[in-house]
Design a protein around this nucleic acid. Structure first.
Length: 704
DNA sequence: GGGCAGGTTCAGT
DNA sequence: TTCCAACTGAACCTGCCC
């Protein structure tokens, strides 16, 4: 294979070493056209050189180079017949992809110009015309266009930005402000496409096909009008791109930034011409690593070259990757409007001064667990995969994950499992710890977590719809019930005794571990991290696995029996109610709402801001999600009533009502899921087995 | 060997 | 003076099971 043109020669490397130090800042951003790139690169290099961060960057670079070398070697080994074969594969695939081309939709991508910085300037006009960045000395989120002239940009450390531009003004981030302005822009977007897709606070995709047709206006006119409207409402400018698909619309919105727009006509010729010379890095999904690989291995720098080297791409990449690259070469992208996207994971992470003080690290982990638990409870989420992210003092990033059998959301559960993951890595000097929970209840069938459902379940069990107590770990209380109701709804609610006992056992296991942890925490603060632990909890990293049965042995058997009976009884009466009580949904709703509860109209008024966003929790549900909205409303209603009502009998009555509804909803989802799922899938089989808990640690093969 | 689930990394904002 | 973020979705890789 030919060598990549982008790679500097060895001699150039030694004379101008900064040229080979590629950072994210190497990729040009809007407003940086006149920047002295070499000067910026040199400054960044000089500021970074010798630091641990720099060393890690070099390690990463070396790894990518190694990968490139390996791929080149694989390319070199391809025989003439191999190459001919893969070329045929590519040609066939290109034809198939071409057949999917849809030019019937008109997509508009709106991108607010230097959003955070613009909002701050609006708030404080004295910043106008002066170089300014939002963020701090460690990292900046965005920079205004005056600052960009100096090479300052988002994702750049503040101390480097200041070196590039000594006059730079730093403004701390204020997400409340940005959310407020973001909501204003979304009000405007909704007028043009009620189902618009918000990509972030400052970006959105709109399908403007209908509005163009209805008003007999060109896409350019609509884009112009929308941008004017956004400016009138917010005082902020935005840029827009119009194209037949979202991938291209995104590229187009960057072309005339700031405060401009670009329309790519909806015909194949225009698309192919546009895409032909487009650098691959402009495409969403192609980042620094992929760019290096494509350039280094195949000499691919423009989208057009994706097609020219299609045979090699098919030979060396997976089908899905090759398809993506070929699609890029053809200028294809998504044209459909996806259903409401639910969150798939929730996480938090914190950077701090690097430390190997175990006590301090435990403390950080406890804080993160607490924060994550609060965030999850706010959204009514529980998940069963916990990922621990670590960044060592030398900037090496590791992640370690564990998937539990039960869904968790309490601080104690999170901390319990996080500690096990962390302990397997210690001793270690760390500068960042992060926790992430994924695999939310229900998400494997494509219907991502509906907070209402879970929280309602919690409400039924604990009588606390806020979830506040639900996740508190108690031996006999909510958590046990939790495990019962958090079980995938596709499992019938009539629970097999044996299975119930099994779950209970695990809960007890966790409870015991938890008490160990509490003990640890207690000692932590008193003994500077020297933890006295009589049980199996690993503390020095030497024990990688917790032996469940050893710990289960600590739990009194009577508790297990009691709990299993408790759950069983609950589930029986619950199922029984649902079987004997399936009244008409609407009728039941109306009856319920008669009890001094807001009417449907009132509900709409107080709950759905702009007809799509819940005013109470912020969750977004479009108007056509009638049932989901109803359930969501019920949740808030339950929450409200729970607070107001002290009368236990009334609570009981409501609990029964919502039990019915929750079960009906579960059944509906269950039905939907079944219809979309292959019979006798392995996952179902696996779940029915309820394999013993729970932990297995996998070391990553490659870390940076 | 295909399908699937779990774990890790990349990329975007 | 300050010394490289936080969060999320999705692709990719690997190992296991049938």
């Amino acid at each position: 294979m030919e060598k990549a043109e982008a790679e500097p020669s060895a001699s150039a490397d030694s004379a101008r070493p900064w040229q080979s130090y590629t950072t994210v800042y190497t990729n040009a951003k809007a407003g940086m056209d006149g920047v002295d790139k070499e000067k910026v690169q040199r400054t960044v290099y000089e500021m970074s050189k010798g630091s641990k961060y720099f060393e890690n960057e070099e390690r990463k670079e070396a790894f990518i180079r190694q990968k490139i070398d390996n791929m080149r070697a694989r390319c070199a080994k391809l025989s003439a017949s191999d190459i001919s074969h893969y070329q045929m594969v590519a040609d066939k695939r290109i034809l198939e992809l071409e057949a999917t081309r849809d030019l019937s939709r008109i997509w508009l991508h709106v991108d607010m110009d230097a959003f955070y910085a613009a909002v701050e300037t609006l708030d404080n006009p004295s910043l106008r015309g002066r170089p300014m960045a939002v963020g701090g000395m460690s990292m900046i989120s965005t920079a205004n266009y005056e600052a960009r002239k100096f090479g300052v940009r988002a994702a750049m450390p503040g101390f480097i930005a200041r070196k590039l531009c000594p006059e730079l003004i730093f403004v701390p981030t204020d997400f409340k402000k940005y959310t407020y302005y973001s909501d204003l822009t979304r009000k405007v977007f909704q007028k043009y496409d009620p189902n618009f897709m918000a990509a972030s606070l400052d970006e959105a995709y709109l399908d403007i096909t209908e509005v163009c047709n209805e008003r007999d206006l060109t896409s350019g006119e609509i884009a112009e009008e929308l941008r004017t409207s956004v400016h009138e409402v917010t005082g902020l400018t935005c840029s827009a791109g119009v194209a037949p698909n979202r991938l291209l619309a995104k590229v187009c919105s960057d072309i005339n930034k700031p405060n401009g727009q670009f329309v790519l006509p909806s015909n194949r010729m225009a698309v192919m011409t546009f895409i032909s010379s487009l650098p691959i890095r402009k495409i969403g999904g192609i980042g620094k690593v992929t760019e290096h690989i494509l350039s280094g291995v195949f000499g691919i720098n423009t989208c057009e070259e994706m097609l020219q080297k299609g045979g090699f791409l098919c030979a060396l990449f997976s089908r899905s990757s090759a398809d993506f690259f070929l699609s890029v070469g053809l200028g294809l992208g998504k044209t459909d409007t996806p259903q409401v996207r639910f969150r798939k994971s929730i996480s938090n992470e914190r950077t701090f001064s690097a430390t190997d003080d175990t006590a301090l690290l435990y403390q950080k982990l406890a804080e993160l667990s607490e924060m994550l638990s609060i965030d999850m409870q706010k959204e009514g989420l529980s998940g069963r995969t916990l990922t621990l992210k670590l960044k060592t003092a030398s900037f090496e990033v590791r992640s370690r994950a564990v998937t539990m059998q039960k869904y968790i959301c309490s601080r104690e559960d999170i901390l319990n499992h996080a500690l096990k993951l962390l302990n397997a890595e210690l001793p270690l000097s760390l500068r960042l710890i992060g926790l992430r929970i994924s695999h939310f209840n229900e998400d494997k069938d494509g219907h991502l977590s509906d907070p209402t459902q879970k929280t309602l379940a919690n409400f039924i069990i604990s009588g606390d719809a806020s979830g506040k107590n639900v996740c508190e770990h108690s031996l006999l209380g909510s958590d046990t019930s939790d495990s019962h109701f958090m079980v995938d709804p596709e499992n019938d609610l009539s629970i097999d005794n044996h299975e119930t006992c099994h779950y209970v056992s695990e809960d007890l296991l966790d409870s015991n571990l938890l008490s160990d942890l509490d003990h640890c925490n207690f000692n932590l603060s008193n003994n500077s991290g020297k933890i006295d632990n009589n049980n199996e909890l690993p503390l020095n990293g030497s024990v990688a696995k917790v032996n469940a049965p050893n710990v289960v042995g600590c739990a009194p058997k009577s508790h297990q029996i009691k709990v299993s009976h408790l759950v069983e009884a609950d589930s029986f009466s619950f199922s029984e109610q649902c079987e004997s009580n399936r009244p008409d949904r609407a009728r039941r709703t109306n009856n319920d709402l008669d009890d001094g509860v807001p009417s449907s109209n009132q509900k709409e008024q107080f709950l759905w801001v702009n007809d799509y966003k819940c005013s109470l929790c912020g969750i977004e549900l479009p108007p056509n999600f009638v049932e989901e909205r109803q359930e969501h409303f019920d949740f808030h209603l339950a929450e409200k009533l729970q607070k107001e009502e002290s009368d236990n009998s009334r609570n009981l009555m409501l609990n029964q009502r919502f039990s019915q509804r929750d079960h009906t909803a579960s059944q509906r989802r269950h039905k939907r899921h079944k219809s979309s799922k292959k019979e006798g899938s392995k996952s179902s089989q696996k779940e029915s087995k309820h394999l013993p808990i729970d932990m297995f640690f996998v070391k990553s093969n490659q870390n940076f």
